[in-house]
Simulated assay, not measured.
Amino acid sequence: MKTSILVQNLKCGGCASTISSKISTIENISNLHIDVEEKKVSFNYLNDADILIVKEKLKHLGYPSIEDNNSLISKANPL
């Protein structure tokens, strides 16, 4: 199956290279494509758990999905 994730902070080829090198090592992920202009990471996966693993890895790398509101400001300002 194929999916795409829109991510925050994806701004250049260096970002794309970092994402590519880290995500490509995840089991069950193939045909990885990163579109810097659209801020989109696309890939093939085997099951839904694979998507969650990729989202967590992206978040850990500093490229959270656009649905994730865990910005540094919100983490620094617990209310």
Score class of each variant (00 low, 15 high):
N44I: 13
E27K: 10
Q8D: 11
A16E: 03
N47F: 02
K55S: 05
V7I: 07
L72P: 00
C15Q: 10
I53W: 14
I26W: 13
H60T: 05
F43N: 13
S4M: 03
I29Q: 04
I73W: 15
I19H: 00
V41E: 05
S20H: 06
K11Q: 09
A76T: 09
D50V: 01
V41Y: 05
S4P: 02
T25G: 05
E37L: 01
I26C: 03
N70K: 09
I34K: 06
L52S: 06
I53L: 10
E38V: 14
S20N: 14
D48Q: 12
Y63K: 00
I26G: 00
S65Y: 13
E56K: 14
S4I: 04
T3F: 00
L79N: 07
F43T: 06
G14F: 00
H33Y: 14
K39S: 08
V36N: 05
E67N: 07
S30I: 15
G62H: 04
G14Q: 03
N77Q: 07
N70M: 05
D35N: 13
T3N: 11
P64H: 02
G14L: 14
L58G: 02
S21G: 05
N69M: 07
Y63F: 13
I73H: 13
A76W: 15
N70V: 01
K39W: 12
I66N: 08
I19M: 02
N44E: 13
N77L: 15
H60F: 11
K11C: 06
S30M: 14
E38Q: 15
K2Q: 11
I66L: 10
I73F: 15
D50I: 01
T25F: 08
N9Y: 04
L61I: 00
S71L: 07
S20P: 09
D35Q: 04
I29S: 01
S74N: 09
S4G: 11
S71N: 09
K75V: 03
G13R: 13
L46N: 08
G13Y: 03
V7A: 06
I29F: 11
K59G: 02
D68E: 12
I26H: 05
N9I: 13
I26A: 00
K40D: 06
G13L: 12
L32N: 02
G62M: 01
K59D: 00
G14I: 14
Y63V: 07
V41W: 03
K57M: 09
S24V: 09
V54T: 05
G13Q: 08
S65M: 01
I66D: 15
S17Y: 01
N69H: 03
E67Y: 12
I26Y: 05
K40P: 12
L46H: 07
L72N: 02
